[in-house]
Design a binder for these strands. Sequence first.
DNA 1: GCGCTTTCGCTACGCGTCGTAGCGTAACTG
DNA 2: CAGTTACGCTACGACGCGTAGCGAAAGCGC
Lengths: 228, 228
Amino acid sequence: MNWLTPKRLPAGMVAVMCSRPHPKAVRSGRLGRPRSTEADTAILHATRAALVELGWSKLTMGDVAIRAGVAKTTLYRRWASKSELVIDAVAVLFDELELPDRGSLMADVEGVVLQFATLLERPETRTALMAVVAESTRDEALRSRIRSAIVNRQKTLVLQGRARAQARGELPYEENAESAARNADLIFDVIAGAVVHRTLVSAEPVDQAWAHSFTTLLLSGLTSLRNS
Amino acid sequence: MNWLTPKRLPAGMVAVMCSRPHPKAVRSGRLGRPRSTEADTAILHATRAALVELGWSKLTMGDVAIRAGVAKTTLYRRWASKSELVIDAVAVLFDELELPDRGSLMADVEGVVLQFATLLERPETRTALMAVVAESTRDEALRSRIRSAIVNRQKTLVLQGRARAQARGELPYEENAESAARNADLIFDVIAGAVVHRTLVSAEPVDQAWAHSFTTLLLSGLTSLRNS
DNA sequence: GCGCTTTCGCTACGCGTCGTAGCGTAACTG
DNA sequence: CAGTTACGCTACGACGCGTAGCGAAAGCGC
């Protein structure tokens, strides 16, 4: 019903080359009053604030509109659903993830684990990440949006870390491109999955000690696990 | 508001020794018309069916009541929220998880990974698991319910698998009880986290090949990772 | 300056779900 | 039998959703 209204733009239009394609991007061409960029930032800021105070389930579109000082209709002109709005609001937080060269594969992994954990300590990401992932299990469009807005950014770090480790001689170069990609995906799922599960399911902190133990396990394997 | 109504029972009452303590358990003592156990099973069955057809977000209490052939008020007499209902409905699916002895640690891990993956292929669990976890980030009571109903059951498998591996001589006995517990938690987060992340975030299948690669990585570590 | 186009804030609306109250009836206990 | 609790049913207020319609504002091309 919603998917066929003229408000929806053809799918191709979203895929234009842009760092953050707007959900309901209007052709930036010309004609008419341009969209207020202040409204955009105000809405996203208000969404994060609402996530902190209310959490995902109690966040309402009307409330966000009021916080942003914007009419509710303005909100719906840009985002078709609460999920898409929240994804965009949270996605920018993942931009601060980076991989400073700490000199060794071990230190690099530990660093990225702690960085990711710090991100997941924020109430916005805690409450939003799992919620949108849950929503995406029944919505392919949402899933691809999460992928491009959040997941792919994290995956880059894995590729970067591997390249460094290979340059240092800590990891072998993989001539087979396919299996190299598979391995990167595997490692990404292991790292991100472990941190997320520890944080949100087990609900216990990812501190220095845990990061160290995890990294040791990841590098050396289960058979070499010893008491610390 | 909801948390203070007389409907809510004191917290201790839920923690009675019972395999599956009912959310709003009434003292099984006596007096008056007993609760219909058929209604219980019908509701949980209807909830799973609704999850399959509608998914978490579109599931409504009224719809579940109709499917179960039960009044909506009957539903609310037993479960205070949609989250608690869904947890109970899904929890039984996790009971079928077990750890058959396959002769080696490697085979055991691979087996449990594939079993867990099979469980996550079901639409009920896919859509429900992440949703209730997301909900639990702001609700400690919900989190402990998930832990006792779902997570702890899985964690047992890790302990079981380790004990077997130790008996086989594949893993060393850990004299330090604390670090042994920490290691078990770590391994659990790594295994469950990786499978969940692969399935629900990366949205790619956990097949035999992936399970094998993952298990190899877990046992031997990153440094020994080679092309397959 | 003038039209044309699009977005803006605002109000109002229908719809669906929520969770509860109140009733009469059914089931079980002593 | 009386006492107690669960049941099905109806009705209700509250609230969030997403949209329609309005006049005003802010750009563009002329």
